[in-house]
């Protein structure tokens, strides 16, 4: 084969990336009962219980109908859980089942493998986001004040938590270690991140503490996109999300280049 027949690395990388995303998408669809159905079920329960039953007694929150207030929060919660969960279980599964080697022997740089899995996590997060939104629309009407804000914040959040899932999967040595972080850190932070309430209702110290929770900014920016107001400054929110994405990407790629958890 002459030099002319050798495809450029950029070309190889693009096709490689596309294939990783295609495979991740195939996985999401193949196991849809595990990936797409549970968020729909949980969302329905949340809307029934918190929205319809309890919400009716609560009245308004931040000036909105309680159901409308929690809808963006619940959507974001599902996006966070699912983008994280997709990458952590897919990448850990690939390590565990050794098919990660299919990628490691291929001429693809590590940053591209990370990007491929992150794209898979984002796709899962967004798909689930759409599912939960559809459920929400059964119960209430959701205004969309700033569509770009909605899109930007949900995308960045999905990227950040996909990277988080990747980080977790790199270090995980068994299945316990891929459930530990979501259960003990992610879920509490999400519940305390303004999904169900406005932090202005909290006692002073708790309100101030809440501002140390990055999820508060993500949920806040997202809600702002729908309702037009929120607890957090948008500049701050986007700075935090962008910074988290960049730093975590750098960390994860460095770990991959060192071979942590994947090369002997």
């Amino acid at each position: 084969m002459g030099a002319a027949g050798v495809p450029s690395l950029a070309r190889i990388q693009w096709v490689g990336f596309e294939t990783i995303v295609r495979r991740e998408f195939g996985r999401i669809v193949r196991i849809w009962i595990q990936t797409l159905v549970p968020p729909a079920v949980t969302a329905t329960l949340y809307f029934l219980i918190f929205g319809s039953l309890i919400g009716r007694r609560i009245g308004t929150m931040g000036g909105y109908d309680y159901m409308q207030y929690i809808a963006p929060g619940l959507i974001m919660m599902a996006v966070i859980t699912n983008s994280y969960g997709n990458v952590v279980s897919s990448f850990f599964g690939a390590k565990f089942g050794k098919h990660i080697e299919e990628l490691l022997v291929a001429p693809l740089p590590n940053w591209l493998i990370v990007l491929g899995y992150v794209a898979g996590g984002v796709v899962r997060g967004l798909l689930v986001g759409v599912v939960v939104t559809a459920v929400a629309l059964f119960f209430t009407r959701i205004p969309v004040e700033h569509p770009l804000l909605v899109a930007g914040s949900v995308l960045l959040t999905a990227v950040v938590f996909s990277l988080g899932g990747f980080f977790n999967a790199i270090f995980a040595k068994n299945f316990d270690q891929i459930t530990w972080f979501p259960t003990f850190v992610l879920t509490p932070l999400t519940y305390l991140g303004g999904v169900f309430y406005s932090v202005s209702l909290l006692p002073d110290w708790a309100e101030r503490l809440s501002y140390a929770n990055p999820i508060l900014y993500m949920v806040g920016a997202f809600r702002h996109g729908f309702l037009g107001t929120s607890d957090v400054g948008l500049g701050m929110a986007f700075a935090i999300m962008a910074l988290a994405a960049v730093v975590m990407f750098a960390v994860v790629v460095t770990l991959m280049n060192r071979g942590t958890g994947i090369r002997e």
């Binding site: 990388q13 096709v15 490689g16 990783i20 299919e102 291929a106 001429p107």
Partner: peptide, 10 residues
């Protein structure tokens, strides 16, 4: 998919 990982068009 393995072909794809090596950059072979679909």
């Amino acid at each position: 998919n393995q072909a794809g990982f090596y950059g072979i068009p679909r």
